[in-house]
């Protein structure tokens, strides 16, 4: 987690992604450093999830490059990243075992795993549910478990794809507090959302996508108050009209 050894900054150069003969992302250029919380904003279908997956290395770009420029980039960069998906995958195991599984894949020694899993569960307020089958937990509990499971591997970068979609206000607040905590501990946060309120609360900088194009990359305050583009203004007023 230490900044000098981080894999950041992340440089995205002329990234294009096509699937089924359709260009879904057009010529994205973007550099993200490690200090700021980046929020990717955009309407449904803008390409937010695709961009996260491409940056994380789950999808291969059709053309263009994704390069981790940090001093900490030695082996596979994906080993220094974690991602919480829009719909988190819950293994058919207990909450605790979901976390020890992730630790095992990160080559954490068997003796160390249970304790670190307990610490992660405590952080997410799930200590009482350690033995509960993950798939029987509520949506909010699963979302928090997914965060704990991502955090426990001590990533340099944490990708979050709408981590609070479909959560109630209390669960949303709990998850946002967790995200704040990770940021404070030095983890780079890259989060997709179309919730403007959340962007206001969490973002240092905004990347605004629309129809597969990157239209704005600006400090959060600037974008949220004075978007440069017509689409950006429409997106923000759309929220106010709701």
């Amino acid at each position: 987690m230490s900044a000098p050894q981080s894999i950041l900054p992340l440089e995205v150069r002329q990234l294009v992604y096509e699937a089924g003969g359709t260009r879904l992302l057009h010529d994205i250029n973007l550099t993200l450093n490690h200090t700021q919380r980046t929020v990717i904003l955009g309407p449904n279908g803008a390409g937010k999830s695709l961009l996260l997956r491409l940056c994380h290395g789950l999808l291969k770009p059709t053309s263009g490059e994704i390069v981790w420029r940090g001093a900490g980039t030695r082996d596979q960069p994906i080993r220094h990243q974690a991602m919480v998906f829009q719909r988190p995958v819950m293994l058919r195991r207990s909450a605790h075992a979901n976390i020890t599984h992730a630790l095992k894949l990160r080559d954490v020694s068997r003796s160390e795993r249970p304790e670190r899993a307990n610490a992660a569960l405590a952080l997410a307020g799930l200590s009482d549910l350690a033995d509960r089958p993950a798939r029987l937990m509520s949506g909010g509990e699963q979302q928090r478990l997914a965060l704990a499971r991502a955090w426990v591997t001590e990533p340099d970068v944490l990708f979050l794809d709408e981590p609070t979609a479909s959560l109630d206000p209390a669960a949303t607040r709990a998850v946002e507090t967790l995200i704040e905590g990770f940021h404070a501990a030095g983890t780079k946060i890259i989060m997709a959302t179309h919730d403007l309120g959340q962007a206001r609360r969490l973002a240092d900088e905004i990347v605004f996508l629309n129809k597969g194009r990157l239209l704005e990359h600006a400090p959060a305050k600037q974008f949220l108050e004075r978007p440069d583009t017509r689409e950006g203004r429409a997106f923000i007023t759309g929220d106010l009209l709701w």
């Binding site: 596979q76 994906i78 990243q81 998906f85 995958v89 293994l91 992730a102 095992k104």
Partner: peptide
């Protein structure tokens, strides 16, 4: 189909994938 993204995100090799 359900697990692939999570396992790939964890950089699981073929053996770990199969085992899981």
């Amino acid at each position: 189909g359900e697990y692939s993204e999570h396992l790939r995100s964890l950089n699981a090799g073929p053996l770990d994938t199969l085992g899981t």
